[in-house]
Design a protein around this nucleic acid. Structure first.
Length: 194
DNA sequence: TGCCCGATTAACT
DNA sequence: GTTAATCGGGCAA
C-alpha cells in the first residue's frame, strides 16, 4: 500500500473523507484499517472551526496533512486529519478503525478482549492507539504516524453524522460498507418501504 | 467570573 | 432508555 503524502490532504474534505475509507492508519505501529470517518467543513456550524480560530482548533487553520487532536467532553481524545488549502480550517474526524496491528497493546490499553470494540468510536480509537494532546499538530506523513492509501476497491456507505446537534442532516459520515468495526451501523440506502 | 453545552463512553435501570 | 465523568469554548455579566 503506497504511503499517503501531504498532497493527499490538499483537497476538499468531502473528497478526502471517503478516500480514507480502507486506508491503513498506524500510530507507533499500532492500528489498522480506517472504516469510519466524518467530514467537517469550515462553513459547517457543527465544525469546531466554524466560530473562528481558538487555541484549541488552531491546527485546523494551518496547512493540510497535520493531526488535530482535541479533548471531547473533558474525558476522551479525538483525532482529525486537516484537509484543503491552508486556512480552510476543514478536517476529517477518524471515528473507527478495524484493529489489525498491535492487538495485544490495544487490548491492554482498552481493558477489553473484544476486537470489535477496540477502535469502534473516536474516543476508543485514540485510547487504543494512545493518541493524546501531545500529538496535536504533528505531520501525518512522518513517524509516529504511518498512513497508507488503499489499493483495492471498497464500497463506501454514506449517512448523517453522529453525536452533533447542528447541521445534523448533512450526509458527511462515511464508512466501509458491511464492516463490523463501525461505531454504529449505517442505515441502508433506499426509500421508505411500502 | 459563572454558567451552559459539547464531533463520547461505560455503567446503570 | 438514562446518567455520570470532566474540561475548554463561548457568552453574559
Amino acid at each position: 500500500m503506497p504511503l499517503i503524502r501531504r498532497a493527499f490532504f490538499a483537497r476538499s474534505v468531502h473528497a478526502v473523507a471517503p478516500d480514507l475509507i480502507g486506508a491503513m492508519f498506524l500510530f507507533k505501529g499500532v492500528g489498522g484499517r480506517i472504516v469510519e470517518v466524518e467530514a467537517y467543513h469550515h462553513t459547517d456550524p457543527a465544525a469546531h472551526s466554524f466560530a473562528g480560530r481558538t487555541e484549541r482548533n488552531a491546527v485546523m487553520f494551518g496547512p493540510p496533512g497535520f493531526a488535530y487532536v482535541y479533548r471531547s467532553y473533558g474525558i476522551h481524545w479525538c483525532v482529525n486529519f486537516v484537509c484543503e488549502p491552508e486556512g480552510s480550517a476543514s478536517a476529517v474526524l477518524i471515528r473507527a478503525v478495524e484493529p489489525l496491528e498491535g492487538l495485544d497493546r490495544m487490548r491492554r490499553r482498552r481493558g477489553l478482549r473484544d476486537e470489535r470494540l477496540l477502535c469502534a468510536g473516536p474516543g476508543r480509537v485514540c485510547e487504543a492507539l494512545r493518541i493524546t494532546r501531545a500529538h496535536n499538530a504533528l505531520p501525518l506523513d512522518a513517524a509516529p504516524f504511518e498512513l497508507r492509501r488503499r489499493t483495492g476497491k471498497v464500497e463506501v456507505a454514506v449517512g448523517p453524522r453522529i453525536g452533533i446537534t447542528k447541521a445534523v442532516d448533512h450526509p458527511w459520515r462515511y464508512g466501509l460498507k458491511g464492516s463490523r468495526f463501525l461505531s454504529k451501523p449505517f442505515r441502508p440506502a433506499g426509500g421508505t418501504p411500502g
